[in-house]
Structure formats: structure tokens, C-alpha cells
Design a protein around this nucleic acid. Structure first.
Ligand code: MN
Ligand code: MN
Ligand code: ZN
Ligand code: ZN
Lengths: 135, 135
DNA sequence: GCAAGTTTTAGAATAGTTCTAATCTTCTTG
DNA sequence: CAAGAAGATTAGAACTATTCTAAAACTTGC
């Protein structure tokens, strides 16, 4: 009884999205294995290799819709490209600079103490920790 | 006896850069007041308003050279644009999401405990903390 | 099955950034 | 301080990631 069933049409419907062939194919690639970090281009290449072809515009549309629906989270670590993360829970990232690889690490064991209060008139939205490493 | 004198030609030379008219004008705008966070476009607009005109290509060249020389640091917080930061010391950022504003906060009072060790074959390069807030 | 609303798509458009190559400036050397 | 070499600036073209447009193809509820 996992909250993340493999019935992708149902999961899309639950998120308020019509389960079109393209969205189901993308959801399958994104969610059927463990957590993933993809770019629009990498996902497009992957889904193309998996028989069903989906246009790049649709990949961008789906990634933005999935993010807006809370199925994905967007991660900005490098100028010029966005990553989309199937892990929507609290966690942080290693970013391996030369190859552009992202790895999760849990936020549970990490303690951030002494953060100042947000500037006047603002509310906290999210705290991102990016540990940049090189080979 | 500040390490950051207002003799911009000398500072540029010390960084291994020829003190051309354009670079001196940009350095003045960037470094003569306190710490700043600029984008290429915002710096271009600012320097244009200050009498001397500098092409956008030169602004990009100078920002990249200043960063490579250690005079600036590049901050990636939003998809599609880079910020350049005149504060090159250890510190972290508030990012005010709707308006794209960046504010520093010192890393001295912030303690990050329990960070996992970098993946095999990698060395730590930098830890970025971005506190995203909205109005 | 049909109509009504949605989605997909190819290709055009846009935004931020980098590149090209001609011109101009700065520096070195005599 | 003049001349030449090396380096910098610039306009505009090119490039990359992403979004937009509008026409054709789907999905859905009846
Ligand atoms: Mn987006
Ligand atoms: Mn750059
Ligand atoms: Zn992640
Ligand atoms: Zn800063």
C-alpha cells in the first residue's frame, strides 16, 4: 500500500492531470524506479529510446505541470539548465561540478542552526543546501 | 589600510587584468559602495546610466574575468540568469522569490552539522545555503 | 459516437549568454 | 615617446535552454 503506486493514470488523475499517453509514458520513466534527477533533454532522450516518442515541447510542458502539481521539484544548481527531482521530500544535494551530476542526501541527520530570521515582510519557503564537490 | 582600496586600476592589475577604461568603470560601479549582487543586464543598465558606455559583451567578459580572478563570485539561484556577488567571503543567501532579490547573511553564526562525506573520488568545493522566502 | 474542452506538436520566437572578426587600446621596448 | 605586438572592445551573429503559437489529434462526459 505505498503512496506511490505504479498505476500511473490514477496518480496523474489524482494530481489533476489527464492521463494522456505522453504523460503516462513520462511518468513511467520518471517514477517507476527509485528517485531520479533529470533535465528536459535527458528525459526526452530517455523516453525516445523507450519506443513511444514524445516531443520536446511536451516534455517541457509535462515537467512544469508535474512540478506545479507537486509530483516533482525543480533544482537550480548550474547556470543555464534546470534539473527536475522525483524526490519531493526534504533532502539536500551533492552537485558534482565537472559532470553536472546530482546526488541526494537526507536532511534528517543535517542540522542547520543559527539561520537568521527572514527579511521583514517575507515568509520562509524552503532552505536549499548544495554541497558542491569536484573530482 | 583596507585591503579593498579605491585605486581600481591597481586592483585590476593586482588581479592580472589590464585596467582598461571599461573594466575600471565596471569595477567602480561594482566595488566602490558596499557588497552588491548584480546580473549582467542590471550592471549594463547601471554603467550606461553613469556616462561611460560599455557594450553588453564587455560586461559579460568582465564579469567572467572578475569571477575567474576571484574578485566576484557567481551565484546560481534561479533558472535562466546568473548573479554575480561582490562579497567573495564565506556567507549565504536569502532569495526573495517573486522579485529575484538576493540578500547576504553571514555564515559565522550558522552551524551546519552532520553533512555526509562527499561521494567517493570527490573533494568538497563549497557549501551553498539558499534560504528561499516569499512575500 | 459526438461535441467540447484539452493536449500534443512542429516550428517560430524569446532570453540569456557566448562567439566572431574587425577595430581600437594598452603595454613594452628601444 | 614612437612603433609594434599583444590584448580588449564591439556590433552583430550564433547558440542553448526554454516558451509560445496555432493547427491537428486526443480524452472525456454525455
Ligand atoms: Mn520553468
Ligand atoms: Mn559564465
Ligand atoms: Zn534530489
Ligand atoms: Zn552574497
Amino acid at each position: 500500500m505505498s503512496g506511490n503506486s505504479l498505476d500511473f493514470p490514477a496518480r496523474l488523475r489524482a494530481a489533476g492531470l489527464r492521463p494522456t499517453r505522453q504523460r503516462v509514458a513520462l511518468a513511467r520513466v520518471l517514477f517507476e524506479a527509485g528517485h531520479r534527477h533529470v533535465t528536459a533533454e535527458s528525459l526526452h532522450a530517455e523516453v525516445k529510446a523507450s519506443r513511444m516518442s514524445v516531443s520536446l515541447a511536451t516534455v517541457y510542458n509535462a515537467l512544469n505541470q508535474f512540478r506545479d502539481a507537486g509530483l516533482l521539484r525543480e533544482v537550480v544548481v548550474a547556470p543555464g539548465r534546470s534539473y527536475f527531482d522525483t524526490n519531493t521530500g526534504h533532502h539536500h544535494h551533492f552537485y558534482i561540478e565537472p559532470d553536472g551530476e546530482l546526488h541526494d542526501f537526507p536532511s534528517e541527520k543535517v542540522t542547520i542552526a543559527g539561520l537568521p530570521t527572514p527579511p521583514k515582510g517575507t515568509r520562509l519557503s524552503r532552505v536549499d543546501v548544495i554541497v558542491r564537490v569536484r573530482r
